[in-house]
């Protein structure tokens, strides 16, 4: 079954852009929340990850902070 992927990002963060491109290039569907605009989602991100760095990526409950290509590959199984 496909994993549910959520990306918490800001418009200006270079790594958010790279992370999203990486997911797109690998045909991974994801929901993208702009936590610079969406306060509720920012709170959600902080609650889940205990920190404020972006991008924060939630893959079926597994939290990855930053654009960590190797971990993404591992968790996504690609």
């Amino acid at each position: 079954m496909e994993k549910k992927v959520i990306v918490y990002s800001t418009k200006t963060c270079p790594y958010c852009k790279l992370a999203k491109e990486f997911l797109k290039n690998n045909n991974i569907e994801f929901i993208d929340y702009d936590v610079g605009e969406d306060r509720e989602k920012l709170e959600e991100m902080i609650k889940k990850s205990g920190q404020m760095g972006v991008p924060t990526i939630d893959i079926d409950g597994e939290i990855i902070v930053g654009f960590d290509k190797e971990r993404l590959k591992q968790v996504l199984g690609i």
């Binding site: 963060c13 920012l42 404020m52």
Partner: peptide, 17 residues
């Protein structure tokens, strides 16, 4: 670090609306 302190304004400024 990453809990309010950042070294990258470009990345994190929007979080502080």
């Amino acid at each position: 670090r990453n809990k309010g302190i950042t070294y990258c304004a470009t990345c994190d400024a929007p979080l502080f609306r």
